[in-house]
């Protein structure tokens, strides 16, 4: 789980081109949208594609994204659940 969270942070920084952000700047439970990293709706689309491409997980209901992408913690939990299912 810890490795997965680190991997997610690295992918988020790379995919979303967060030039001035390092993995240490992203806390596991920091909000990704709004006050946290300040991601927006285009980033949400990028994250949905990343889940599909890198982890083989398709979001059946886009509304789920609000909870799944709340933080790196929630993303890692969701991916782990889906892989184990």
């Amino acid at each position: 789980m810890t490795d997965l969270k680190l991997e997610l942070k690295e992918k988020i920084i790379e995919q979303l081109n967060l030039e001035d952000v390092s993995v240490d700047d992203i806390g596991d439970s920091d909000p990704l949208f709004g006050e946290g990293l300040g991601l927006d709706s285009i980033d949400a689309l990028e994250l949905i594609v990343m889940l599909d491409k890198d982890y083989g997980i398709k979001l059946a209901d886009p509304k789920e994204g609000r909870q799944i992408f709340e933080s790196v913690e929630t993303m890692a939990t969701y991916i782990t659940q889906q892989k184990g299912a």
Binding site: Q15, I42, L45, E46, V49, D52, K53
Partner: peptide
């Protein structure tokens, strides 16, 4: 590269 799958919006925009 992605065989016409997984296209993200940023580059397209």
């Amino acid at each position: 590269d992605n065989k016409e799958q997984f296209l993200t919006p940023t580059r397209f925009i």
